[in-house]
Design a protein around this nucleic acid. Sequence first.
DNA 1: CGCGGGTTTGATGATGCTCAAGCCCGGTGG
DNA 2: CCACCGGGCTTGAGCATCATCAAACCCGCG
Lengths: 194, 194
Amino acid sequence: MDTTVLAKHIRLKVDLSDAEIEIVAAYFIEKDLPKKTILFKEGIIVDAIAFVVEGCLRSYSVDENGFEHILQFAPEGWWITDMLSVIKRQQSVLNVESIVDSKVFLLKRASQDELFDKVPKMERFFRILTENALCATRQRVIEGMSLTAKDRYINFCETYPDTVVNNIPQKYVAAYIGVTPEFLSKMRSQLYRS
Amino acid sequence: MDTTVLAKHIRLKVDLSDAEIEIVAAYFIEKDLPKKTILFKEGIIVDAIAFVVEGCLRSYSVDENGFEHILQFAPEGWWITDMLSVIKRQQSVLNVESIVDSKVFLLKRASQDELFDKVPKMERFFRILTENALCATRQRVIEGMSLTAKDRYINFCETYPDTVVNNIPQKYVAAYIGVTPEFLSKMRSQLYRS
DNA sequence: CGCGGGTTTGATGATGCTCAAGCCCGGTGG
DNA sequence: CCACCGGGCTTGAGCATCATCAAACCCGCG
């Protein structure tokens, strides 16, 4: 189990010794996900959070008309789960799925409390993680109200890494910025002509 | 300083003795806000979070065309601030303002770490608070993409307490659900006729 | 090959915005 | 006490943005 990516990511936020990293790593379960594998399915009670070691996942909900809406993309170095289901222990409304062949490290909810006891800095790490996620999501709410679809798309291209912008199907980008695939296609052709 | 509302609210999430509540309360600063008073102004670095004891506040951003978009309403028992500014210590992009005559308790960022040392359960309390806020905000992102304006309005009326739905100007509701005041008015007249 | 999913393109239509006018109503000054 | 003001809400006509539906195209893959 290669913990390089995980260690690097955690050390961006809190200081951990090599020994501590080893303890932390022991709590994770490695899992390979071929393209289009569902990690967490709508309706279950999710009991783990996933750290993306390689590849890219997405979390999405399906509305009453069968349309998918993407809440989050998680390329390498990101975390993804259905928070609401994990915290409240209620049935999940999100699906979490790999977009390409991916590898994740899973941290079970049950192990998490034990981990916090052994390495208290990890509690701080997850608090910071949650705070950052909250800020990003609030930013997205504001953008959804103040920007046009075209500006949201431009914004998306500028903020997400190239691996997400250019290596995933356009229809997923459309489902993230909140337009139909057809309309995204029209916006793009208009952007490239000008 | 009457800490009844605050104590009741904290005890919904963590168990605190009367003695602990007293310690916690000592870290808060009481502040009265007449109607339409700005508590935190766009551009400053916000260094406190506010607990609403009575009344109702709102946080909002102003876009490049001068339109206001409301991120959050905070009636009695809610918390409000510009998280991004507090955490990252960067210039705030939100205004926080009282809608009616209100009273808040302020907790300075600097006091917060000290408070966590003296009453560790409060760190847990704020982690839970942040997690809940994240879930609620993500829910709002999904709703913004999957519901029509009319359904978002109905949803708003059903989820927010009566004090918010019926006691604040309609234009604020419009700025929250993401439509113009004119269009909200038309939706309402259509809803009441049917 | 041919199939199938993703993307493009076009015609048409719904949703929600803009601008402008009028109304309602609480507040304020003469 | 009334006249007037101003902010918020309503209403209507016209318009922009974005969705829907249908057809064609592209291209990797069996």
